[in-house]
Every structure is written in structure tokens, then in C-alpha cells.
Measured scan of single mutants.
Amino acid sequence: EVTIKANLIFANGSTQTAEFKGTFEKATSEAYAYADTLKKDNGEYTVDVADKGYTLNAKFAG
């Protein structure tokens, strides 16, 4: 089991951190699915991958 950390950075400057656990593939998929649920209210996002894929920095356009 691994933990994927998602740093969510919103256009207004606020941030949120979420963690997803499971296999690498499952946890990564859940992190992206969570970011997708936030698109409606926060706009499209881009992701910078860090820490060999164990940290995802998602920046929302607003």
C-alpha cells in the first residue's frame, strides 16, 4: 500500500491537502478523480508530479 498526497492549489490562493491510499494505480486514480469533482466550481487544473509520482500538485485555474 502506498499513499499519494494531493496538494490542491486554488485560484484564490487557498490550498487543501488530501491523501489517497491503496496500490499506486488506485491511489493515483482516486486523486485525479477527486480533482475532477472540484473542476465544476474551481475550473480546469494542471498537475505537476513530484516525489516520483507520490505527490501531485494540482493548480486550479479558477
Score class of each variant (00 low, 15 high):
residue 1 E to H: 12
residue 2 V to H: 07
residue 2 V to W: 02
residue 3 T to W: 06
residue 3 T to G: 03
residue 5 K to P: 00
residue 6 A to W: 05
residue 7 N to K: 09
residue 7 N to Y: 11
residue 8 L to S: 01
residue 8 L to R: 01
residue 8 L to G: 03
residue 9 I to S: 08
residue 9 I to Q: 09
residue 9 I to M: 11
residue 9 I to D: 04
residue 9 I to H: 11
residue 10 F to V: 00
residue 10 F to Y: 06
residue 10 F to Q: 04
residue 11 A to V: 09
residue 11 A to H: 09
residue 11 A to S: 10
residue 12 N to D: 15
residue 13 G to P: 00
residue 15 T to R: 13
residue 15 T to A: 09
residue 15 T to Y: 12
residue 16 Q to D: 09
residue 16 Q to N: 08
residue 17 T to Q: 11
residue 17 T to P: 04
residue 17 T to M: 10
residue 18 A to S: 08
residue 18 A to M: 15
residue 18 A to N: 07
residue 19 E to A: 08
residue 20 F to D: 02
residue 21 K to Y: 14
residue 22 G to E: 03
residue 22 G to M: 00
residue 23 T to C: 07
residue 24 F to M: 10
residue 26 K to F: 11
residue 26 K to W: 11
residue 27 A to N: 01
residue 28 T to S: 08
residue 28 T to Y: 12
residue 28 T to R: 09
residue 29 S to F: 13
residue 30 E to S: 08
residue 30 E to A: 14
residue 31 A to I: 07
residue 32 Y to A: 03
residue 32 Y to D: 01
residue 35 A to T: 07
residue 36 D to P: 00
residue 37 T to M: 14
residue 39 K to T: 11
residue 39 K to E: 06
residue 39 K to Y: 06
residue 39 K to C: 08
residue 40 K to A: 14
residue 40 K to C: 13
residue 40 K to V: 12
residue 41 D to S: 12
residue 41 D to W: 12
residue 41 D to T: 13
residue 41 D to V: 12
residue 41 D to H: 12
residue 41 D to F: 12
residue 43 G to E: 03
residue 44 E to C: 13
residue 44 E to V: 09
residue 46 T to A: 08
residue 46 T to H: 10
residue 46 T to V: 12
residue 47 V to L: 09
residue 48 D to N: 10
residue 48 D to F: 11
residue 48 D to Y: 11
residue 49 V to T: 10
residue 49 V to D: 04
residue 49 V to E: 07
residue 50 A to V: 14
residue 50 A to G: 11
residue 50 A to W: 11
residue 51 D to Y: 00
residue 52 K to Y: 14
residue 52 K to C: 15
residue 54 Y to E: 06
residue 56 L to I: 15
residue 56 L to Y: 00
residue 56 L to Q: 03
residue 56 L to W: 07
residue 57 N to D: 06
residue 57 N to L: 07
residue 57 N to P: 00
residue 58 A to T: 09
residue 59 K to R: 14
residue 59 K to Y: 15
residue 60 F to E: 04
residue 60 F to R: 00
residue 61 A to P: 07
residue 62 G to T: 07
residue 62 G to V: 07
residue 62 G to M: 06
